[in-house]
Design a protein around this nucleic acid. Structure first.
Length: 723
RNA sequence: GCGCCUUUAGCUCAGCUGGUUAGAGCGUGCGAUUCACAUUCGCAAGGUCGUAGGUUCGAUUCCUACAAGGCGCACCA
C-alpha cells in the first residue's frame, strides 16, 4: 500500500528536522561509528564561523560544498571526519559586545573592568555559538559534533601557548619596538592584512618650514610636521644634492623647534610633489624605514594613541585632535607666508577592517613573528619559504589555480607579522615579566612578583593552528596520526591570506606537514542584482528563512548549481523555488513508480532487459559515471546539474512518460524489464542525489519499505565505485 | 604602478585538454493538461561567443594588443 504521505506534496518543513535527528542519532557523523572496514580517512576541518551573530548565505554555501564532499566520500567507503567549530574572532566579537553594552548601559569596557567585561563577552559568545550550532544542523551538515572545537576553548588554548613557546624558543617570535598599525577606535594594533584602504580626497600642501629653509616639501598631513626630524631627497636629484648631509635648525615652526637633517634616499620619488619628503619617523612607515637607514631620531611622537597631539607638538597644540591641529598648522603657515601651494589629490586612507577607525602608524613595543629567519628544524627554510614551497611544488593544490599567483604575490610582499593585540578578548600572551626578566612558558612562574603581559594574540594566530589543534595537538593523539594532513580546505577566497596561508605556515613549521592537500575557494554570494548582501541594503537572504520557506535541499541546490570555484554567485528566491519544485518532482517520480509496481520485487541483479531498456541502462550508467568524475574533480556544480537534468528531463519526462505506453502494451517481458528499470533507477537517483539533496532523498528512502530495510541512505554505497 | 579575474541568448551562468547544426535555468510566445506533479508537459522564438589582429586544415576554446567592468597588492611625502 502506498504511504499516504505521497498523496500530498513533499513537505521539507516537516521532514527535514526529523531526518536530521535520525542521522545524528545514528552516530554516523562520527567516523569511529561508521560500519565496514574504512581504512582510508577523509578529513575536512570546517572553517569556524565567528561567534559574532548568525549564519549568512556564505556560510550556507560553505556548509553545502563541504557536506557534499563528505557525504560523497562517506558513501564511497571512506572514514570521513568533518570537524565543526566556531571562532572567537577576538576584535570582531569584542567590538560587537562593546557596542551593545554602550547602547544599553552607556558604559565602555574600562567602566566594567577586564574580568566583568570578559564575562559579558563570553556570555554573548556562548549564545551566539548555540544559535550557530543549531543553524549548522538546519543546513543538513553531517559533521562530527562529538569533536566540536572552539578556537578559545581549553584545548585550543593549550595549543596556542605551546606554539607560542616553541616559536619563541626558536627565535621566530620576538618582541620589538617598531612602527605598527594603531587603530585609535579599537585601541589596539592590527596586522597589515587587517587594513582596508579607502580612496578619499585630500589636500596636498606645499610649504617651507621657515623663510630661510632651502627646500619646499609637500604633505597631506601638516599636523605631523611638528614631529619632523629630516628631509629626504633622491640622492641623484640635482636640485638638492648640495644640501645632503646638512642639518638646519628651525627656531619656530608653529611654536616648536625642529632640527632637520637632509638625507639622500633612493626611495624618494623625485617626480612627486617637490621631490622632497619631510620625515616624520614616528608617524609613517616609510619615514621610519628611512630614519633607520640614516640613523635619525625615531621617537619624536606628536600624536598619541587617542589621536590627539602630545606635548612634543608644543603647548598650543597639546591635547588637540588631529583634524583641528591640521587646520591650525595650515593657518599658521598661511599667516607666515610659508604655504606655497594647495592642491586636491586622491589618496588611499588606511582604515581598520573591523572598527573602521583611521589607522595611525605609531612606534610601539609589540610581539612579532619573523617570517625571514631560517629555521634549523626545517632545513634552514624560513616561514616565507615554507609557505611558498608547499604550493610551488604542488603539494598543495589551489582551486581555481590562478589564485596561486595571488598567493605568491602576497608572500613576496609579506613583512613580519605583528601578533599582539591590546584587546581583552582572546588568548592571553603566555609571557610574564618581573623587573627586566622575561619568562615564556605554558604556565605562570610559581614565584611571586611575575606579571603576565596584558595583551592578547591576533585571532588568526589560533586559527592558524586549526587543522591540528582540533585533533589534540600538542598531544600525540590517534586522531593526529590518522587525520592529519587533512584532505580539503574549503573556504572563501577573501581569507586566503588571513587564514589559509597562516595554516600552511603553522603546520609547516610545527609539524613539517602541509595542513591539507587541496584548497577549494568559493566566491561571494550576492543578490539577484549582483550586489553584496548587507544589512544596510536589506537585500540579504537568510538561509534559515530559505529552509523554512523552500526547504534546505532547495537552498543547497540553488547555491551549488552554476557556482564555479573562485567566482561570485548570484542567488534569488526564483532560483531557489525552482529547486523546491525539483524536490517535489523526485517525490512524485517516487509516487508514480511505487503506484505502478505494487507487485514487483526489486531485484538488484536483474539482467533480462528488453532491447530498448538496454540502451536506457547504458545511458543512465554513463551519466552516473560522468557525474562521479565531476565530483572527484571538484566540479560539483556540474555533477549537480547533470543529475538534476537527468532526473527531471530524461527519467521523468521521457522514460516515465514512455512507461505508461509500455505498461498498456501488455508485453510481459517489456513490462517486467521496464518495472525493474524504474525501481533500479529510482534507487540510483536517490543515492547519487543524496550528497546534494540529503533530506528529500533520505526521506523517500526511509518511506519505501524495501529501501528502508537496508538502513540509512547516508551510508549506502555509491554506485560504480571503480571510478 | 604591479598583478589577477570577467566579457557567450532579454537575465543568471555552463562550455574540461581547439573539431560535427554553441548548451542549461529563469523569462518570453503558442498549445495541451480530471490520467505521478499546490502544477506539469509539448513546441517555438532568441546568440556575427567584447573589439582588432595572429597561430592552425579548423578557435567561443590557444597567443598578442585594445576596450569595458570587477578585484588584489604596493605607493600614497
Amino acid at each position: 500500500m502506498i504511504d499516504p504521505k505521497f498523496l500530498k506534496p513533499y513537505s521539507p518543513q516537516e521532514a527535514e528536522p526529523r531526518v536530521y535527528k535520525l542521522w545524528e542519532d545514528s552516530g554516523y557523523f562520527n567516523p569511529d561509528n561508521l560500519p565496514g572496514k574504512r581504512e582510508k580517512p577523509y578529513t575536512i576541518m570546517m572553517p569556524p564561523p565567528n561567534v559574532t551573530g548568525i549564519l549568512h548565505m556564505g556560510h550556507a554555501l560553505m556548509l553545502t560544498l563541504e557536506d557534499i564532499l563528505i557525504r560523497y566520500k562517506r558513501m564511497r567507503g571512506f572514514k570521513t571526519l568533518w570537524l565543526p567549530g566556531t571562532d572567537h574572532a577576538a576584535i570582531a566579537t569584542q567590538s560587537r559586545v562593546e557596542k551593545d553594552i554602550y547602547k544599553a548601559e552607556n558604559k565602555n569596557r574600562h567602566d566594567l573592568g577586564r574580568e566583568e567585561f570578559l564575562k559579558r563577552v563570553e556570555k554573548f559568545a556562548k549564545e551566539s555559538h548555540d544559535t550557530i550550532a543549531s543553524q549548522i544542523r538546519i543546513m543538513g551538515a553531517s559533521c562530527d559534533w562529538s569533536r566540536e572545537a572552539f578556537t578559545l576553548d581549553e584545548k585550543r588554548n593549550l595549543a596556542v601557548r605551546a606554539m607560542f613557546k616553541k616559536m619563541y624558543e626558536d627565535g621566530l617570535i620576538y618582541r620589538g619596538h617598531r612602527i605598527v598599525n594603531w587603530d585609535p577606535k579599537g585601541q589596539t594594533t592590527i596586522s597589515d592584512d587587517e587594513i582596508v584602504y579607502e580612496e578619499r580626497k585630500g589636500i596636498l600642501h606645499t610649504f617651507k618650514y621657515s623663510k630661510d629653509f632651502p627646500i619646499s616639501i609637500a604633505t597631506t598631513r601638516p599636523e605631523t610636521k611638528l614631529g619632523d626630524v629630516g628631509v629626504a631627497v633622491h640622492p641623484d636629484d640635482e636640485r638638492y644634492t648640495k644640501y645632503i648631509g646638512k642639518t638646519f635648525e628651525v627656531k619656530d615652526f608653529a611654536g616648536v623647534n625642529l632640527s632637520i637633517k637632509i638625507v639622500g634616499d633612493k626611495e624618494v620619488d623625485p617626480k612627486f610633489g617637490t621631490g622632497a619628503v619631510g620625515l616624520t619617523p614616528a608617524h609613517s612607515h616609510t619615514d621610519w624605514d628611512i630614519a633607520v637607514r640614516h640613523n635619525l631620531p625615531k621617537d619624536k611622537i606628536v600624536i598619541n594613541e587617542y589621536g590627539k597631539m602630545t606635548e612634543n607638538a608644543g603647548t598650543q597644540f597639546v591635547g588637540k585632535k588631529i583634524a583641528e591641529a591640521r587646520e591650525l598648522v595650515v593657518d599658521w603657515l598661511k599667516e607666515q607666508g610659508l604655504l606655497e601651494k594647495e592642491e586636491e589629490i586622491s589618496q588611499n586612507i588606511a582604515t581598520a577592517e573591523r572598527t573602521g577607525g583611521i589607522v595611525e602608524p605609531l612606534p610601539k613595543l609589540q610581539w612579532f613573528i619573523d617570517v625571514n629567519k631560517p629555521i634549523v628544524e626545517r632545513e634552514g627554510k624560513t616561514l616565507k619559504e615554507i609557505m611558498h614551497r608547499a604550493v610551488a611544488n604542488k603539494e598543495i593544490k589551489i582551486l581555481p589555480e590562478h589564485f596561486e599567483k595571488t598567493y605568491f604575490h602576497w608572500i613576496e610582499n609579506l613583512r613580519d607579522w605583528c601578533i599582539s593585540r591590546q584587546i581583552w578578548y582572546g588568548h592571553r600572551i603566555p609571557v610574564w615579566y618581573k623587573d627586566t626578566q622575561i619568562f615564556v612558558g605554558l604556565e605562570a612562574p610559581t614565584e611571586t612578583g611575575w606579571e603576565q603581559d596584558p595583551d592578547t594574540l591576533d585571532t588568526w594566530f589560533s586559527s592558524g593552528l586549526w587543522t591540528f589543534s582540533t585533533l589534540g595537538w600538542p598531544e600525540k593523539t590517534q586522531d593526529m596520526s590518522l587525520y592529519h594532513p587533512t584532505d580539503v580546505l574549503e573556504t572563501g577566497y577573501e581569507i586566503l591570506f588571513f587564514w589559509v596561508a597562516r595554516m600552511i605556515l603553522m603546520s609547516g613549521y610545527a609539524l613539517g606537514q602541509i595542513p591539507f592537500h587541496t584548497i577549494y575557494l568559493h566566491g561571494t554570494v550576492r543578490d539577484a542584482k549582483g550586489r553584496k548582501m548587507s544589512k544596510s541594503l536589506g537585500n540579504g537572504i537568510d538561509p534559515i528563512d530559505v529552509a523554512k520557506k523552500f526547504g534546505t535541499d532547495a537552498g543547497r541546490m540553488a547555491l551549488i548549481i552554476g557556482n564555479t570555484p573562485g567566482t561570485d554567485t548570484k542567488i534569488s528566491e526564483d532560483k531557489i523555488r525552482g529547486y523546491k519544485n525539483f524536490a517535489n518532482k523526485i517525490w512524485n517520480i517516487t509516487r508514480f513508480i511505487i503506484e505502478n509496481t505494487p507487485d514487483t520485487e526489486y531485484s538488484p541483479d536483474f539482467t533480462e532487459w528488453c532491447e530498448s531498456d538496454k540502451k536506457l541502462v547504458t545511458e543512465r550508467d554513463n551519466l552516473i559515471a560522468e557525474s562521479t568524475k565531476d565530483v572527484e574533480e571538484y566540479r560539483l556544480y556540474m555533477a549537480a546539474e547533470k543529475l538534476y537534468h537527468y532526473s527531471w528531463h530524461s527519467f521523468a519526462d521521457i522514460i516515465i512518460e514512455d512507461s505508461k505506453t509500455v505498461f498498456k502494451s501488455g508485453n510481459e517481458k517489456d513490462v517486467m524489464s521496464r518495472k525493474q528499470f524504474l525501481l533500479q533507477t529510482l534507487r540510483l537517483t536517490l543515492i547519487t542525489l543524496h550528497p546534494f539533496m540529503p533530506f528529500v532523498t533520505e526521506e523517500i528512502w526511509q518511506t519505501i519499505p524495501t529501501l528502508k530495510s537496508k538502513g540509512l541512505l547516508m551510508i549506502e554505497q555509491w554506485p560504480y565505485s571503480k571510478i
